[in-house]
Amino acid sequence: MKPFEHAVDVTGLCKRFDGKAVVDNLTMQVRRGEVFGFLGPNGSGKTTTIRMMCGLLTPDGGAGHTLGYDILRESWAIKREVGYMTQRFSLYEDLTIRENLDFVARIYQMDRRKNRVDASLEQLGLADRQNQLAGSLSGGWKQRLALASCMLHEPRLLLLDEPTAGVDPKARRDFWEEIHKLAASGITVLVSTHYMDEAERCHRLGYIAYGKLMAQGTPRELVANSGFSTWHVAGEGINELAERLQDKTGVDRVTRFGHELHVSGGDVEALNQAIEPYLSAPGLTWEFGEPQLEDLFIHLMGKARDNFAGGGQ
């Protein structure tokens, strides 16, 4: 065990596939004991980044440490102490629940194997179904089994790659409860997701788009540092309003949330000027609110796309 400051500390990570930069100069820190949310749209490079953090992929550039171990030279040590839950269910579907856990315990050369597997089954609530094939479980149960299996060797860091994708809302809630319980017991957790609502459940966040880390910090910091302002407007005729505001200078993003419209911009002065003519329009109620994370992320994604397109020219 090595002393370390951050559970994950990577600088300037780069990875390219077929000449395309999938992860581009990514610098990120995950603090000890926190639940870190790794957000970004599909294909933005989350899985690739996580694989590099646990030594499954060799970065083309950059350096870093996971649990104090060098990701380039000490990947074998990282693998011992990290629990990695892959995006896709990757336990053996043709082995039973018990056989899967037992196999993992053997691979990690655990002592008191039987006791540990029994305890894990008990905790999972699958003790009476232990001889069922893993492939016959529902999505939510598979997710829980996968989590239990990567917790079996008592890792100090959990890397969870979109653990809640395709899981029903109730199971998702339970899953997050579980994650927070684990964090409370001192385990550092990095969760990737593309569900915005899950962002609010994390201590700190990193947002990646097109392989670039666009922002990092607590949800509050992200909003505060973005220099991003949002007006919430409700009432009649917001559909027409949305269309009119769309192309105004100073308005970066117009997003519909049910009966509400969120009008956001990076420059408060310009934004206020843009909406000035409509502030006193009848039937509309305006409210200057905090931008939601979702507004912010959509804004960041747009910004990344613009950069990406610009850089390509």
Partner: peptide
């Protein structure tokens, strides 16, 4: 193909 190799390679095997 089934993705189990990724799991296996993430262990000290």
């Amino acid at each position: 193909e089934r993705g189990t190799m990724e799991n296996l390679l993430a262990t000290p095997v």
